[in-house]
């Protein structure tokens, strides 16, 4: 992997541009002033639904819980015609097989977190085994976490090699690399970690586990989008983006879509390249769609919680 880079990891990291956080905040604020109305809004809402990785990542997850969520993934709100399904469900490795069979005959993918999610505090052998298990169980996508401790300690080579090793273990499964930006703290770190992950072979980069606050702030996602943009400009290769955690309203989702559109372009606006890691977002979007169709503000009592 490193040979393909034709530069050392150190060089890669030092080539990452610095980020001025206040400048990022200002730019993000401008995305938030975009006013999305009418057809444009409906299109965005449906697009948003189709980009969701419906997620349950709890110690108390059971087959029953996962099966119900999978049903929801395929039947978001049958009352409304022409709705897409979500993009994927996201579960722990032990639930992959259950999800896979629940989603049989649907286009909904199964994503599995792995690599000792969420902390990632395990040896590489364990992480590889974790990943291989999930892939063997049928996971279409693997959401790994990087070793933030190693990253913060400056062991970039370790982080890079680990990502590359997991990528190799993924086989045909697409790899999403979770940076856990809430633990990296600075946007400079977010950018460096993004570059590491992208160059080490990530198919997607993802903000957070959902277990740490702040999670997918727009500042963080923006910074990651710029890393994707720079990589694309340099290599012509597209990398996907997945903000996860904290995006629970349709409004925030639309702001994210605006940001993707204006930074990366319309090409990225499919679930092939952009995902929301979220659990409660779907219902909020559904309520918005219903509101657009009926003109009446909605109650959560009328939308299933699975």
């Amino acid at each position: 992997m490193k040979k393909e880079l034709q530069q050392s990891i150190e060089e890669l990291i030092s080539a990452s541009p610095t980020i001025d956080k206040v400048g990022v905040e200002e730019r993000v604020a401008r995305f938030q002033t975009r006013s999305i109305k009418g057809d444009s809004k409906l299109q965005a809402l449906k697009m948003g639904l189709n980009m969701i990785d419906l997620t349950t990542l709890e110690g108390k997850d059971t087959p029953g819980k996962v099966q119900q969520m999978c049903y929801k993934a395929m039947h978001l709100h049958d009352e409304l015609a022409n709705l897409p399904t979500v993009a994927a469900v996201c579960v722990y490795p032990s639930m992959v097989k259950i999800a896979k069979s629940a989603l049989v005959n649907s286009s909904v993918k199964v994503a599995s977190v792995s690599t000792a999610f969420p902390s990632g505090q395990a040896p590489l052998s364990v992480k590889l085994a974790d990943t291989t298990f999930a892939v063997n169980e049928g996971a279409d996508e693997i959401d790994m976490v990087i070793s933030r401790g190693k990253f913060l300690a400056g062991e970039y080579d370790y982080v890079f090699d680990e990502i590359a090793a997991i990528k190799a273990a993924c086989g045909n499964a697409r790899l999403k690399v979770i940076l856990e930006t809430g633990e990296l703290l600075t946007l400079d770190n977010v950018r460096k970690a993004s570059d590491l992950a992208i160059y080490a072979g990530a198919d997607f980069i993802k903000t957070s586990t959902g277990k740490i606050q702040p999670a997918a702030t727009m500042q963080v996602t923006f910074t990651m989008l710029l890393a994707i943009k720079d990589y694309f400009d340099k290599t012509g290769k597209m990398i996907g983006m997945k903000p996860a955690g904290g995006i629970s309203t349709a409004k925030l989702a639309i702001h994210n879509l605006v940001m993707v559109k204006e930074v990366l372009g319309n090409e990225w606006l499919t679930n092939q390249w952009f995902r929301f890691g979220a659990s409660s977002l779907a219902n909020d979007i559904l309520m918005q769609i219903r509101k657009l169709e009926t003109g009446v503000y909605q109650s959560s009592d009328y939308f299933s919680i699975d």
């Binding site: 956080k21 206040v22 902390s119 633990e183 600075t186």
Partner: peptide, 13 residues
């Protein structure tokens, strides 16, 4: 000059 305000991260582990 901008003032970078960082921090506020909390863990739910």
């Amino acid at each position: 000059h901008p003032i970078e305000n960082v921090g506020g991260a909390t863990s739910n582990y």
